[in-house]
Design a protein around this nucleic acid. Structure first.
Length: 862
RNA sequence: GCCGGGGUGGCGGAACUGGUAGACGCACAGGACUUAAAAUCCUGUAUCCUGCAAAGGGUGUGCGGGUUCAAGUCCCGCCCUCGGCACCA
């Protein structure tokens, strides 16, 4: 009987479904293993060959772990909110819910056709109100929390209110503080506005990236994606919800060290957080009471600071600008406000305008002209810098354009002309009060900071590049933000009993025409009266970004039906953290950073037992087209998994995706290669079934294996076991091919050994192995069979080849019994004809003998 | 520019802590089976030189140096490529 993969695969997929073979067994006595895939966005174009690569890898690992006696959690779900469905709705007025449902069905069917061992009873869908109810709930938890620096963790906002009621703001370390009595006398609005400064979710009028065509704002990190597609994005100020992720900058950085993540991913997260150490320094402004605060990583160059630069948006600009400069300053400020961050970055020549005002250098007491320039960003540090043109590339360029003074205060080992930005030795850095001449940079920094602190005009400081997370999107197809804007100007969060706040039904999905989302058009939904205060209010019309649902989906899988909580505490304690997480590297920064952030907040608030969600992370590499270029419709090199499965079967498809090369590497598709592994599976089939009736091959008999074949089995079991553990699937498959090649040659195939081989292959090609298992006479699935063991001592070759070298050149090779001792090896080498030829008439000056490896004679002319 | 990965046959890729480079697969060539083809099976395949052959020798892991008895693997200096960041003071 032929290897009829279509029948076999359909049969076993049905069987697994009907018998709930992969239903998660929550056995607290067993060790647990949480194996997670990044869930997909179910797009209209269906699965492509890139998705199953990661899914197959985790599936092999999950099946392997089940057979090794672990309780395995291996779920799948849908990240189904998102712009494509909404854009489709704009064009067709078909509700995104319907499109999403259809796409999910396609994805599920395709994924199921690959025989992946997911527990489908745990499927989640971010667009299901019973799911996003908890997304909204978590949002409120974050909204109703603040970051207590003293405890270095998030606490409920109620704890802050209690403290204020008890002892005022004295212990909060604010610039101006008030008493408990004063707090109680504040109006509702005043209290509300004060708390806003602390909440982990706050709203603010901020310059955002507005895309008119999409009718929405974009996060900074999303801008590039859309401008590349030809959309134009402009800066404009808008009131937005923002999450205070910056409160967690240090912990996100610090805790990453303990994670088993790819080096490049860690590196990118570190860069994204962008920690830098330095000092904050206060500068006096001539003729003004106010001080100008700057952040610098090079306090040691203070003697070389010859001018100041403010970001055009800096609040001091209007105040300090002299009348003469007013008009040109205003023009410049307006100009920059229209530029996007990207435009600001790409302008090659430095621009700026003098304010007419001067600051005083605290060590040299020299006057420093204060300029504004768009190379200084309001969002980083204090939005102002001390310019040290001698030792900073950007300041140097600026100083050259405007003819500002350039001083040299740091000397390198080698004399350099122009700007010197590295560490060196301080020079020309002496005044009556402070001298750092001759000190290396790090010492000089310390001295200056010490002096600043003594004078109370500065202190050491740490800055992060990480910005707070813009959380509002002007879209329909997202989670509604559960907040009401009351007529007195305060915001009120819904209570948890009011969740889920469902999306209103809409007839049309076009942008509202204003800066609000289409939700603004649902008048009945938007306008409400607050029961508690009787105030009129409007619901927030912005929705959450697509990242929201994926920030916690891994927790919902653990307890998907729970109506009382987002996840049962006991279940969380058992299953978390995720032991293996596999997904695309495109999520390196955003998804992984946001999810870690939410996880830490929930941890701080006592909802979770773990401080990090994903212990071990790997990325699958991109699968390129057959032409080694990125797959795309326009190139016509897209491979559809459905076609491959139809032609060669899911087992061949899975096997090939794993055989192509290392999981994390980028590699080209090759349909001929699929034929190769398909041939391999055919050979496997014929090993067991090679007759018309489809019964067991007569060569499979109950007998002991030959010692050679037994050794090969142990070698194979060892390699496959170790390689699966290390996610090296390609080499595991190569070893199984070697096994099959040898088994094919045998006339008698020992049943026991052959059965174990079926188990070894089963995580990779589960359908065919289940069928062979049945043919071998077993009554039930092999999915829970114990993983075949091996004996490392039986995997060792008895005879091994060693090489003989003369002067490091290979002259001969021969087989010797394993562990032949060194003198024995040397004797054999000396007796070797070809070696003799090269020793003839020479003197042996050195002999290197390595057991089981080689003999090397170093010779010289006699 | 900075940071991080990676350069091995015609192709995808193997190679433990420095110790036989090229496992396994694809492709290709020759052969067996067949009227023929497909399928299947067997053999060969880094490259150059000597040889009818058996065999032997040289070269070879991006390039140039170095360490070592011995380097794909370690060190120094380059080149190319992929990914990320990019006025972050």
């Amino acid at each position: 009987m032929k290897y009829d993969f279509q029948t076999i695969e359909a049969k076993w997929q049905r069987t697994w479904d009907e018998q709930h073979t992969f239903r998660t067994v929550e056995d607290l006595r067993k060790r647990k293993m949480y194996i997670l895939d990044m869930y997909p966005y179910p797009s209209g174009s269906g699965l492509h060959v890139g998705h199953p690569e990661g899914y197959t890898a985790t599936d092999i690992y999950a099946r392997f772990k089940r057979m090794n006696g672990f309780s395995v959690m291996h779920p799948m779900g849908w990240d189904a909110f998102g712009l494509p469905a909404e854009r489709y709705a704009m064009q067709t007025n078909i509700h995104p819910k319907l499109t999403t449902e259809e796409n999910v069905n396609t994805f599920r069917r395709q994924i199921k056709s690959l025989g992946l061992s997911y527990d489908w009873e745990r499927e989640v869908n971010t667009t299901d109100p019973q799911y996003y109810r908890w997304t909204q709930w978590i949002f409120l938890e974050i909204y109703n929390a603040w970051y207590d620096r003293r405890a270095d963790r998030a606490c409920p906002i109620s704890s802050l209110v209690e403290e204020l009621e008890r002892e005022g703001s004295a212990k909060l370390g604010l610039e101006t503080s008030f008493s408990a009595k004063q707090w109680k006398q504040m109006s509702r609005k005043e209290q509300h506005d004060f708390l806003t400064q602390f909440r982990l979710v706050y709203s603010a009028e901020v310059p955002v990236n507005w895309c008119e065509a999409l009718g929405t704002v974009l996060a900074n990190e999303e801008v590039a994606e859309w401008t590349e597609k030809g959309y134009s994005v402009v800066r404009r100020p808008m009131r937005q919800w923002i999450m205070r992720i910056t409160a967690y900058a240090e912990r996100l950085l610090r805790d990453a060290k303990a994670l088993d993540w790819p080096a490049s991913t860690m590196e990118q997260q570190r860069n994204w957080i962008g920690r830098s150490e330095g000092a904050e320094i206060e500068f006096e402004v001539e003729g003004n009471q106010k001080h100008l605060s700057v952040f610098t990583t090079r306090p040691d160059t203070l003697f070389g600071a010859t001018y100041m630069v403010l970001a055009p948006e800096h609040p001091f600009v209007a105040e300090i600008t002299t009348d003469r400069q007013k008009i040109s300053i205003q023009e410049y400020v307006k100009e920059t406000s229209l530029k996007s961050d990207i435009e600001r970055g790409t302008d090659k020549v430095k621009s700026g305008v003098f304010t007419g005002a001067y600051a005083i250098n605290p060590v040299t007491h020299k006057k420093m002209p204060i300029w504004i320039a768009d190379y200084v960003l309001m969002g980083y540090g204090t939005g102002a810098i001390m310019a040290v043109p001698g030792h900073d590339e950007r300041d140097f360029e600026f100083a050259k354009v405007f003819g500002l003074e350039i001083l040299s205060v740091v000397k390198g080992v080698e004399p350099s002309d122009g700007v010197f930005t590295e560490d060196g030795i301080a020079v020309n850095s002496s005044s009556i009060e402070l001298s750092i001449d001759g000190l290396p940079t790090s010492k000089a920094k310390d001295q200056v900071v010490e002096w600043l602190e003594k004078k109370r005009i500065g202190k050491s400081a740490v800055q992060y590049k990480l910005r707070d997370w813009l959380f509002s999107r002007q879209r329909y197809w997202g989670e509604p933000i559960p907040i009401i804007h009351l007529e007195d100007g305060t915001a009120k969060a819904l209570s948890t009993e009011e969740l889920p706040l469902e999306l209103p039904q809409l007839e049309k999905f076009q942008p509202s025409g204003t800066t609000e989302s289409p939700l603004a058009l649902a008048q009945d939904w938007v306008n409400v009266v607050d029961r508690e205060t009787g105030l009129k209010g409007r619901r927030e019309t912005n929705t959450m970004p697509q990242w929201a649902g994926s920030c916690w989906y891994y927790l919902r899988y653990l307890d998907p039906q729970n109506a009382k909580s987002f996840c049962d505490k006991e279940k969380e304690r058992y299953w978390m953290p995720v032991d293996l997480y596999i997904g695309g590297s495109e999520h390196t920064v955003l998804h992984l950073m946001y999810a870690r952030f939410w996880h830490k907040v929930l941890f701080d608030l006592g909802h979770l037992s773990t401080n990090e969600p994903f212990m071990k992370l790997r990325h699958q590499g991109t699968i390129l087209g057959e032409d080694s270029r990125k797959m795309s419709k326009s190139r016509g090199n897209v491979v559809n998994p459905d076609e491959i499965v139809a032609l060669y079967g899911a087992d061949s498809f899975r096997l090939f995706e794993m055989f192509m090369g290392p999981l994390e590497e980028m590699k080209p598709w090759n349909t001929k290669g699929v034929e190769g592994v398909h041939r391999f599976l055919n050979r496997v089939w014929r090993l067991f079934v090679n007759n018309e009736e489809g019964i067991l091959e007569s060569s499979i008999i109950d007998s002991d294996p030959t010692s050679d074949f037994e050794r090969l089995y142990h070698q194979t079991a060892k390699k496959v076991t170790e390689d699966i553990e290390a996610l090296r699937f390609n080499t595991a498959i190569a070893q199984m091919m070697i096994f099959v090649n040898e088994a094919t040659k045998l006339e008698q195939r020992p049943r026991q050994t052959m059965e174990k081989f079926v188990l070894l292959l089963s995580p990779f090609a589960p359908h065919i192995c289940e069928e062979l298992w049945t043919i071998l006479g077993h009554g039930s699935t092999l999915a829970m069979e114990p993983w075949p063991s091996f004996d490392p001592s039986k995997a060792i070759e008895q005879e091994i080849e060693v090489v003989f070298q003369v002067n490091g050149r290979l002259r001969s090779r021969t087989f010797v019994p394993i562990n032949t001792d060194e003198p024995g090896l040397e004797l054999r080498a000396l007796a070797d004809a070809n070696v003799k030829k090269y020793l003839d008439g020479k003197k042996i000056v050195k002999r290197i003998v390595v057991k089981n490896k080689l003999v090397n004679f170093v010779v010289a002319e006699a």
